[in-house]
Write a protein that binds this DNA or RNA. Sequence first.
DNA 1: CGGCCTTTAGAAACCGGTTACTTTAACTGG
DNA 2: CCAGTTAAAGTAACCGGTTTCTAAAGGCCG
Lengths: 361, 361
Amino acid sequence: MAKLTITDIAGRAGVSKATVSRVLNKQAAGVGRETRARIQRILDETGFQPSATARTLSTGRSHSVGLVIPDIANPYYPLLVSGVEQTLVAAGYSLVLCNTGGNVAKEAAYIGILIDKGVDGVILNSSTSQDDSHVRLLEDADIPLVLLDRVVGRRAARYGVFVDNHFGARQAAEHLLARQDCALVFINGPPDLSQSIERRAGVEAAFAKSGLPRDRLRVVEADCTLEGGRRAIADLIEAAWDGSGKRRLSFNAAFAANDLMAFGALRALRHIGVLVPDEVEVIGFDDVEFARLAEPPLTTVAQPAMEMGAASADLILQLIAGARPRQKTLMMTPRLVLRGTTGARPASASETPRKGAKEHG
Amino acid sequence: MAKLTITDIAGRAGVSKATVSRVLNKQAAGVGRETRARIQRILDETGFQPSATARTLSTGRSHSVGLVIPDIANPYYPLLVSGVEQTLVAAGYSLVLCNTGGNVAKEAAYIGILIDKGVDGVILNSSTSQDDSHVRLLEDADIPLVLLDRVVGRRAARYGVFVDNHFGARQAAEHLLARQDCALVFINGPPDLSQSIERRAGVEAAFAKSGLPRDRLRVVEADCTLEGGRRAIADLIEAAWDGSGKRRLSFNAAFAANDLMAFGALRALRHIGVLVPDEVEVIGFDDVEFARLAEPPLTTVAQPAMEMGAASADLILQLIAGARPRQKTLMMTPRLVLRGTTGARPASASETPRKGAKEHG
DNA sequence: CGGCCTTTAGAAACCGGTTACTTTAACTGG
DNA sequence: CCAGTTAAAGTAACCGGTTTCTAAAGGCCG
């Protein structure tokens, strides 16, 4: 059965395309009660669905939004996607998913495709904070843009939904640094990400306040994958190997810029039989679902991923509707969740008031 | 800067739209060397990108494919999505993601939207195996369809990529049933899924072969979530509670139809201090990334998720290209991966040859 | 040198909707 | 009874491409 067009419907009803179109769009004026009813009946009988493509060409609105993310396989992103998707679909929009694999070239290519496709807006969780040439393309084409999770270009210049990375990292670092004689390793993500810069700053701030000697903080960089985190720690262990049979660790606390790397670190530690949290304490970032499930459950800085996704979708819908909210950036507050990979701390009055709450069970 | 159109380009080059179109589409014939070069130069200078919408309307091909999945937050699906996405983008197609949350009505609604949008094909990981009315809609509209992971309607009737659920479940059940005095609980998914039926049949087959008395197998149903798996086991524990302080378990082996439910089961068991695998052995299904990471690492039936996604994308691309492969269904073989939630078995000659391999580390 | 073939390029229809503008008819009020 | 309004419905242009058909020009051959 060939696909019906509005002309077919018009033919059957003995009216013009224009009239059918008016009924389709539920326009109050311009169609008589009787005619409208007749057309409506034919619409219902045939189950006619107008072509979204034709409508898009004619109206310039596609009712779809592009979502660009680095890596759907990283368990943090599905939550983000889920939040975006739910909000969009509720508003009658659909989602074009662009998974860049952290590849900046692929990201740029995807943005080009989204422009061609005529999406009404783009939510961008970019893999680079430096080069914003592809983002300019969007702006030149006047397509609303919401940055998600990672800043591109000047922070306040564009709409965006972020988490307070500095705060979150500081909380985590402070907690670790309160340990007796702490020697901290910070496993950061790629250094060209705004995120990485902010988190590092948070760690440094906490470290400065601790007054510990400079060599007690080491910062290493990894690629946000489990294997990257594992190798980062394995390398450190290797480097401290003194040739004798006895293993010596050069650190007793590790903070990873995401949970996946934290799990990798734990894996490396477990591999050589290091006890967590007794010998080394570990904190991650994100709070993916499995952080709770791991044994021991992972202490981590929780980000409200689903809410962030939903918020970015809300924002893009507003922009598409033509609104231009004063408040350009929405900053969410992360929360340190204490679980099993960190040890108990003596309740001390001197400690900063903490947002993190101990979870039970 | 207003968006350029093909007419603008034609104007600048002093030629007609038709000629520009021929250059755009790299048609060999119909344009002189010199003219072609001049137009090409203007194209490059302006960075002109033709509107995909207009092209779609005109040619009837959208170069996009819809992917319908039940739940992106379930860690099994991102892998599937990733496999699909990589294959599609490599072929110049883009991906419209439809997350149904297991809601059949939402699934049907999404299929309607995909038809309107004029996607060239649909990959459907359905939440129902019964009602295929919405799938018929696709077929009426002559839109190629590939079923993924779950059968809808008669198995051989439609193109699809599946895993041999019967085999996988049988492997797992056999392994568990080899335990001394085994009392097995099978936590199945929703009973209206083809998957669930097949896996159950696999379990029943293994059980029948074991010769154990009927009451040694219990089948319960849950909703494929972690919480569902947890509750299923918690309920069984509750039911076996004899009022005294001493806990009695009515089973010593559990096989869950996915890893998430297996983790839920482990959680319920841990909650009352049951030792795994000593007191109860547990096997999951899927082999999500965290199965390896959990402590103890989860024994599970591994599905090649990424490959399945890629295979389904390959198949839909073939169908879009007009091919109609003889072989309608592609059946992947799952593999039992023995890890820490099952105990060692005495190597016995009588045992079925096993595909599963013991992993190290 | 004229007719025919081929190449180049343009004109126009088409894809399936939306919408500004126009026509027709009925209704209102002076 | 007729001018003025208003509601209903149609006509046609338009969105931005693709494609078929056709016209013009250039080259080759007899």
